[in-house]
Simulated scan of single mutants.
Amino acid sequence: MPELDLAGALPEPPLDALRARLADRAAEEGLLDVAYRSLDTDVGTLLLAATPAGLVSVTFDGAEPEATLERLAIAISPRVLEAPKRLDAAARRLDDLIAGRARAFDGPLDLALARGFGRSVVERLREIPYGETRSYAQVAAAAGSPRAVRAVGSACRRNPLPIAVPCHRVVRSDGGLGEYVGGVAAKRRLLDVEAAQSPPASAG
C-alpha cells in the first residue's frame, strides 16, 4: 500500500491567525495582561503596548523590542503577548497624529509606567496645545517645581507614551529643540507637521 502523502493536505493556518486565536484565548481566560505590536511610521518603527486599561507604552525600538518587552514584563506583568488586533485602534490614532490627520490621541491611556514627579510632568505634557511648545522651565513651573528643569528633561526622556503624550512639544528656553527619545530628526518632523496644520497666529 503506497504511503499517504500528507504534505499540503492540511495546510497550516497562517501564523497571524494563530497568534490572534492565542491572544483571544488568553484574554478570555484572563491570561493576557499586556498586548503588543509594532507599527511602521514616518518617524520610525514603534513598539506599542497596551493593558486592558489602555495604551501603556510607545517606544522607538519596534524593530528590536526585546528590551522593552522585558521591561514591561517586570514592571507590569509577565503575561505579555503579541496581539496586533488589540492595538489596531491605537495604531491608527498614532499614525493619524504623526501624519497630521489628528490633533490629539483620543483613546484610553494607562499611565502605570509614569510615577512620582514623572507622572506630574506627563499630566502637564498632555495640556500643551497642538501646534504649540513649552520650555522645560515652563513645564517645571506648571508641575509645581520651578527649579526642577533638569528633572523635567529626564521625565520627558522617560515618558512612556511619546507622541500620544506630546513630550516633543517641550523645547529649550533658547529655542533649541533639546533631546528626544526618538531622536532630534523625529522631534523636528513632529513639530513641523503640527506647525503646518495649525492656523497662523493672528496679527495684533
Results as ranks from 00 to 15, higher is better:
P129F: 02
L4I: 15
L6A: 10
A151N: 14
E70F: 01
C156P: 05
A137F: 08
G107L: 10
S38Y: 00
E66W: 00
L15G: 01
D61N: 11
L46N: 03
T51L: 08
P199L: 05
G44P: 06
G54V: 13
R150A: 10
R19S: 04
E70D: 13
L46W: 03
R93H: 06
E127P: 06
L31C: 06
P146Q: 05
G175L: 06
R134Q: 13
R134H: 07
S38I: 01
P13A: 15
Y36I: 01
A75W: 00
R119I: 04
D16I: 02
Q138H: 06
A49F: 02
L31S: 10
S38W: 00
L47V: 02
L39E: 01
K187D: 09
L46D: 03
S198P: 01
P78E: 11
R119E: 13
D110W: 10
R172V: 05
L191I: 08
I128T: 11
S173E: 14
A104E: 14
T68W: 07
D192R: 12
R71S: 14
G182R: 04
A17K: 10
T59C: 06
M1G: 12
T59D: 15
V170M: 11
V43M: 05
P65T: 10
S57M: 03
E132H: 11
Y36C: 07
A141T: 13
V149Y: 11
P65H: 02
R92P: 00
A102I: 04
F117G: 08
R126I: 12
L109Q: 14
A26T: 02
G153Y: 00
L109E: 14
D95A: 12
I76T: 13
I74G: 01
G30W: 11
A186W: 09
Y36A: 06
D40I: 02
S154C: 03
A142H: 03
L69F: 08
G144V: 02
E64K: 08
P84F: 07
D16A: 15
